[in-house]
Design a protein around this nucleic acid. Sequence first.
DNA 1: GACATGCCTGGAACGCCGTTCCAAACTAGG
DNA 2: CCTAGTTTGGAACGGCGTTCCAGGCATGTC
Lengths: 228, 228
Amino acid sequence: MATGARHTDRREDALSRERIVDAAVELLDIAGESGLTFRALSAQLKTGPGAIYWHVANKSELLDAATDAVLSAATTGDHAGSPAERIRAVALGLFDAIDQHPWLAPQLANNPWKSVTLQLFDRVGQQVQALGVPSPAQFTSASALMIYILGAAGQNAANAANARTQQPDGDRAALLETESAAWERLDRAGYPFLHDIAAQFREHDDRAQFLAGVDLILAGITALRPQG
Amino acid sequence: MATGARHTDRREDALSRERIVDAAVELLDIAGESGLTFRALSAQLKTGPGAIYWHVANKSELLDAATDAVLSAATTGDHAGSPAERIRAVALGLFDAIDQHPWLAPQLANNPWKSVTLQLFDRVGQQVQALGVPSPAQFTSASALMIYILGAAGQNAANAANARTQQPDGDRAALLETESAAWERLDRAGYPFLHDIAAQFREHDDRAQFLAGVDLILAGITALRPQG
DNA sequence: GACATGCCTGGAACGCCGTTCCAAACTAGG
DNA sequence: CCTAGTTTGGAACGGCGTTCCAGGCATGTC
């Protein structure tokens, strides 16, 4: 059997697409998006760049595979509760996944309409339908939810990444304090709103804030629905 | 006067931060994010990379300057109409700017809390206050709007970029047709929602869709407001 | 005019990246 | 054992951001 069933009894430390993707995820989690390098990957797998290219076409495909691996593990959620609760569950699942793996955010934002994204979009859309939204408004509602969810998770990931580069200790409270103080120092005429909410910002919780935004959109969907 | 007032009577073709930033914007518009290179910039300005580094610290600073230049020109909008109308105006201004300069999207998404973003956030927040939203909910409402606006513009830019790489002719209709047909080909059990809205998706207008999402959030803000 | 002083230029070079190439090592079938 | 095919991994290519530095050039002083 020349081609066909490979990898049957090969040596123990043989490379495989799976081992490569796992190592890639590990590198991404540790060192961020710029930490995934074919050379670093080679070093970790104790091989050369050429060997990796035998199993993976290029870096883009590797990133896609890493995204699929992480997200398919994270989005196998439960399917219970009201439509609104299920939408919150999907949203929180994605939010937490991106929180744990910040490199996911640009990956999802830059490739809408990839398989994983479509699955999530469909799950959200199903619940929008279950909410009783009339057909013409379903696309708008589901899109708005999806855009908000991906956008919020993305900005959160960007904040986390920036925080990590500025303060390696990961002291989120200190960063909030710094930014909030900066807002209060802005001139009141030019930035009246930031002045007013600086205190709120200092004490806000990202996850709760995210959920509140989801609820805001859900409220809008319900409000614009006929016979609410 | 050695230091101090420079560039008084230097030669005609002298470099300057402004000329560099203008050339950078031009390159970004023509060739996208990956088209901005210190070598390409050198060639266009008929100089070497080293000369550019005298006026600009690094690529990140150059991108920031390009973002500021384009956005400050695009967001000097009018200040008339109801709060909701003004929010729509700010949103559309940003949407159109990103539509014209797709490289803006990742730039804004990855650097929240930069000066330009703060200005926009404040403008949105002022109108949220004008809508009569009580103080504790103002931050949530303005954040949700901002996240949606940046997220939608970003995904739109990503779509545009993908379309450009896949079909250089920029035939948006063909791309919509392709994607919509792909949705209809998906199995109905796994993707019931995508199946249902494939036709809507084929005919949707990005800009109108974007505005509908803004209105959805505005409706939610109004609905959750006491004594609406 | 000549000269010294520092701003400004631009080409060469460094280390890193993604990617390609290919000789060698290894496995399996005859 | 030999041969054919799969898999490996190190070397090399072009391009990137960035640094370095020898020199050009406008200016202030005689």
